[in-house]
């Protein structure tokens, strides 16, 4: 039926939308989320809205995607909020350490629900279609990290918020781009990485690290799929409704579990094929770590209050949602 819907679309005028993201063309974000989502929109709008994906930074670099969508370089963009630090002050709350997310479903639900509730000014210059998250990240290292003591002075690759987190924990954060991390890990310039475990397979870090310490309270990255406002407003209300509905469906059915699925595959690869060893922290040890990173949330509240935001209210929203969805998705 897609043939006839194309014909019909041509009659009524097809809108072609360029979508920019940074994931490789083979990444599930492209093959399982963006492509099927774009196809569903194309079919549901009878071929009136055609989304063309430009993966692998071919249209915009990762840190330029949001502003590229604002100015119309791309019509739609998918990237992380944290690539442009300071640009999304409120949304940093979702990535702060100290909040436990059981999995990417929880983290995604919290982020998207939370953004809708808080509706911060910083994202109102585009039409946000969905936000989803990686969920918890873990420490993967060349030497075993079983306790805080093992972490002291250990060189771990991290940038942005994660660097602050590691510093608080007593590690030695080394900032470098993910593209340099493989070489640095392989030669031991750094001894570990704090990231989602997807990296173990996607960036082959399992080839160069041996231990995996589970830390579901240390890390989270939130992604957005967002559209240029003028382009959005130029669409018919029917097509807008369709895009919102399709996005909602793909958020629920694909996006929120995207990282869980990848993490599962990556862990299988790391444990079964590369012989990595898993380390689980005891409850007592976990609370030592959490106690150290908690002040980062207090600092956030203080800083946000100074800037004239309701710091505590933002943090409470995140916590309430995390409690709710941690119950729902164990």
């Amino acid at each position: 039926s897609s043939g006839s819907s194309t014909e019909q679309g041509k009659k009524q005028g097809t809108v072609e939308l360029n979508l920019a993201h940074f994931f490789p063309a083979t990444h599930p974000a492209e093959t399982e989320l963006i492509q099927p989502w774009a196809k569903a929109i194309y079919e549901a709008t009878n071929g009136q809205v055609k989304i063309k994906s430009n993966p692998g930074e071919t249209l915009l670099k990762a840190d330029g995607i949001y502003d590229g969508v604002v100015s119309g370089v791309a019509d739609i963009g998918l990237s992380c909020f944290s690539y442009t630090r300071g640009r999304f002050p409120v949304l940093e709350a979702f990535e702060l350490p100290g909040t436990t997310y059981n999995n990417s479903k929880v983290a995604s639900k919290v982020a998207w629900e939370g953004i809708k509730q808080l509706n911060p000014k910083e994202v109102q210059d585009t039409k946000l279609l969905m936000a989803f998250a990686t969920g918890p990240g873990d420490l993967f290292t060349k030497v075993p990290v079983r306790s805080l003591e093992d972490l002291q002075g250990l060189e771990i690759r991290a940038t942005g918020l994660s660097a602050d987190t590691l510093k608080v924990l007593g590690a030695n954060p080394v900032a470098m781009p993910q593209s340099d991390a493989y070489e640095a890990l392989s030669k031991g310039v750094v001894k570990g990485n704090l990231s989602t475990v997807e990296v173990l397979k996607g960036w082959k870090h399992a080839e160069v690290t041996q231990y995996l310490t589970r830390t579901p309270f240390l890390y989270n990255t939130v992604f957005f799929v967002t559209m240029n406002l003028n382009k959005w407003n130029s669409l018919s209300p029917e097509n807008q409704k369709i895009i919102e509905d399709v996005s909602k469906k793909y958020f629920e059915e694909v996006a929120i579990s995207l990282w869980d699925k990848q993490d599962e595959a990556a862990l299988k690869y790391a444990f079964d094929e590369k012989g990595m060893k898993e380390i689980k922290l005891s409850d007592q040890e976990t609370s030592r770590w959490v106690n150290l990173v908690k002040p980062m949330q207090d600092n956030f509240v203080k800083k946000m209050n100074e800037k004239g935001f309701q710091g505590q209210q933002i943090m409470d929203t995140v916590k309430a949602l995390a409690d709710k969805y941690n119950q729902e998705y164990k």
């Binding site: 915009l60 840190d63 502003d67 590229g68 100015s71 119309g72 370089v73 470098m176």
Partner: peptide, 22 residues
């Protein structure tokens, strides 16, 4: 696209390539 988008692309490319680590 539009002149505004093109300028945004150009200025971004200039600065981000000049400041590229690799």
């Amino acid at each position: 696209t539009s002149p505004a988008a093109a300028f945004s692309m150009v200025t971004n490319e200039i600065f981000s390539n000049f400041s590229s680590y690799s």
